[in-house]
Design a protein around this nucleic acid. Structure first.
Length: 279
DNA sequence: AAATGCTTCAACCGCTGTAGG
DNA sequence: TCCTACAGCGGTTGAAGCATT
């Protein structure tokens, strides 16, 4: 009757992943692809449940992940998509190749949501909030009115440009309250580099299992780190750049070595993905 | 320098839709 | 048709790092 249970949770490890675990999972998937998440931890020699492995792969280890701070343009697009789709993070994330739903959800909850509230917009409805509910909303978010007023001018200068095409009433409100503001300030955010060892191992493994031009790739990564303050994992754009004879416009570019096959696929609607198959 | 509060985000939890038996 | 497992999704949590006092 039915299928076998996914996993018994007894004896399974939880919490943060170690570099060794990451390496095991990555090696296994790169050599065998993904068929059944339930079997992966067993076959890869991991004391984790399949669900945990899946999450770790999707949110952190996937080669096409684009790391680093979301650009203003991306943030703008998230707000626009959220207004249309609501909290359907995976749908929203599908518009951002290399970004995960978890990442976008976190960014929304920690930054965009606050920014919208500072602008007097309800993050759920994207409509202007009434004064009373705004105060309540501030209270729940620990925003005191003084700091809000102080922040407001600064935030408004950043945000009114982003929001003007999304909510006309918001634009009107913002333009009114910052009409004397001549300068548009920008914020530069940086993130700390983490997991150096893993990334190093990853580079090493990629060199062994593919024909990547690592010098070229490392140069790209360094440039990326300088501009974003973040040490990214293997991003899609980088991976494309690694092939001097290929371009993002090509319909398919593949690397095949040792039984691992990664295929770069660009679909008709310009969505980009990596296809892990077998030879 | 230490204590405290705040922010971020990786990871977990629980639910839902789908499909296998 | 029912029961169950699975993959995927969104909400929530808590540890770690950073900022402030």
């Amino acid at each position: 009757m039915g299928r076998q249970p996914c996993c018994d949770k007894i004896g399974l490890k939880r919490g943060p992943w170690t570099v060794e675990e990451d390496h095991k999972l990555m090696s296994f998937i790169m050599n065998n692809g993904i068929q059944c998440w339930r079997m992966i931890p067993k076959l890869a020699g991991l004391l984790r449940c399949g669900k945990s492995c899946r999450l770790r792969w999707i949110n952190y280890l996937r080669p096409d992940l684009k790391r680093g701070v979301l650009s203003e343009m991306e943030e703008n697009q998230i707000i626009e998509l959220h207004a249309r789709l609501g909290n359907r993070w995976s749908k929203i994330a599908s518009h951002f190749p290399g970004r995960t739903d978890n990442e976008i959800k976190n960014h929304w909850n920690t930054r965009i949501k606050k920014r919208l509230k500072l602008l007097g917009l309800d993050p759920t409805t994207h409509q202007p909030i009434q004064q009373k509910s705004r105060e309540e909303s501030d209270k729940t978010d620990n925003i005191d009115s003084n700091s809000r007023d102080a922040n407001e001018q600064q935030e408004i200068t950043i945000s009114h440009v982003l929001l003007k095409d999304i909510n006309p009433s918001a634009t009107l409100q913002v333009q009114t309250s910052c009409c004397n503001e001549a300068n548009v300030s920008t914020s530069v955010e940086s993130e700390t580099t983490t997991h150096h060892d893993l990334i190093d191992n990853y580079h090493e493994m990629l060199m062994l299992t593919s024909n990547l031009d690592m010098d070229l790739w490392m140069t790209n990564q360094e440039m990326d780190s300088i501009s974003t303050g973040y040490c990214p994992s293997f991003s899609l754009q980088d991976s494309v750049n690694c092939y001097p004879n290929s371009s993002a416009g090509e319909s398919a570019t593949s690397v095949q070595e040792n039984s691992a096959l990664f295929q770069y696929v660009e679909t008709a609607d310009s969505m980009v993905s990596w296809d892990f198959g077998f030879d």
